[in-house]
Design a protein around this nucleic acid. Structure first.
Lengths: 242, 242
DNA sequence: CGAGCATTTGAGTCCACTCAATAGTGGTGG
DNA sequence: CCACCACTATTGAGTGGACTCAAATGCTCG
């Protein structure tokens, strides 16, 4: 089952799993589902939602305001666990929509709760995965609160590049990226028009280009310096439980 | 042990705990500590940090940027669990500083990991608590990304009021609040000068006052309408595990 | 090959910023 | 006990980054 390798590998870097843990985890990959681009996989107010493990494709999680505005919280790429919070809360407090066509495994609330009863190391690994997600949200908060538009865009591209590299979906100088400028705007607290201008600046400064659904880094170090990007919140220190 | 009631009560609304769970949880309250105002309880880069359960006083968690700017992620009030993410990651990715004098219980990494091995329902409850924290961070993200300065301030006061009410630290028309305008600014992605102007506007519009370390609501419904505040992300639906 | 979406650019506006200066407040020590 | 110092709050003036509105161009896919 090659599609489960990304998540499993991530978890193994954190906790050494027993045979029982591995077996329990394997059950998470039983229910294969696919979704069309634009499909709402999870929606605000949904009761007893499922979670999913992304095998291929991109999604994004977001909240809608009364005004109709949208704030994107995070993007999900292959290997990511999505909707965990929707399981822990009886009713989901956010939406998740497929950006591209998606292949995923559906994980039921009962799968998770069983894992907690019978596979404590796996449970620890899941809590760790949730904490890592929270660390990403925190970094996005810093991005919105204290960085300029140029810095925000640069930071987002570097984060996505790093995350995709971890699952082998990057290449020498960049990565394929199905986002629109509206996605970037709603993730970064900017208007789409301004995102467009910022992209032009970054391109003209020889830092990155984002065109034709591809991000290409031209000056990786320059981008890091500009945005203050530090991989700390994505990196691992080696297993907590051996 | 009256100081443990707030957290324990919160957890019990989510998961019915067994006697063993309760006993394990009780161990979290063994190591009583106190800290002076301004003390750094947890700092970025700290290895093998402890977590804490706040008995009294306020703290705030934040990240520092290379530029020296500060982004406050959340405020912690009595009953809150703080530093959980510092335990799951070997090295802490954020700082937590005491705002007032603090009484707290220190929770070691081993306490948490033991709980995961031996008390699965408690483990589930801890994951739920972590998810609730993440939901708050997400709401702060929405605040920064898509709300105006007036809306942000109003939203923060409503959230703090609601959280304090849950632990009985509010009163008829407001709550005691040890924050400075600099704290508000760094939590809301604004300058302290602008926060001051916004507070004047809200006061002159008869909505809230924030003076002399006290927040007083004058038009609760008006504030809610202004900020689009919805308690959903703080509320509970009743126990997931019975 | 049009229809709908996405991108790009211009013009003008405004929200929140910075810099600067003045009060108020509380704690400390001589 | 009061003088002082550091911190916090307040207000004014001027600036600028990001916004909105508007229009033109490009792209893709049914």
């Amino acid at each position: 089952m090659p599609h489960q390798s990304a998540l499993t590998r991530k978890l193994l870097t954190f906790v050494a799993l027993s045979d029982l843990d591995i077996e329990t985890l394997a059950r998470f990959f039983q229910r294969r589902r696919s979704f069309l681009a634009g499909h709402e996989m999870i929606y605000q107010g949904e009761k007893d939602a499922s979670a999913f493990i992304l095998a291929s494709g991109w999604a994004y999680s977001y909240k809608l305001l009364a005004s109709g505005e949208r704030q994107i919280v995070d993007f999900q790429v292959p290997g990511d666990f999505l909707g965990l919070r929707s399981i822990l809360f009886r009713t989901s407090d956010h939406n998740i929509e497929a950006i591209t066509r998606i292949e995923a495994s559906e994980v039921l609330a009962s799968d998770i709760l069983d894992a907690f009863s019978h596979a404590p190391r796996l449970a620890t690994a899941i809590l760790w995965a949730a904490s890592r997600d929270e660390a990403m949200v925190v970094e996005h908060l810093v991005n919105l609160g204290r960085r300029s538009a140029e810095e925000r865009v640069a930071h987002l591209f570097l984060e996505l590049g790093t995350r995709l590299k971890l699952v082998g979906l990057d290449d020498e100088n960049g990565f394929d990226c199905p986002l629109t400028q509206y996605h970037l705007a709603d993730a970064l607290g900017l208007s789409a028009v301004h995102v467009n201008r910022v992209l032009r600046n970054l391109r003209e400064d020889g830092l990155v280009t984002f065109q034709k659904a591809r991000v290409v880094f031209h000056d990786f170090e320059g981008l890091k310096a500009l945005s203050g990007f530090d991989t700390g919140y994505l990196d691992q220190d080696g297993p907590l439980l051996r």
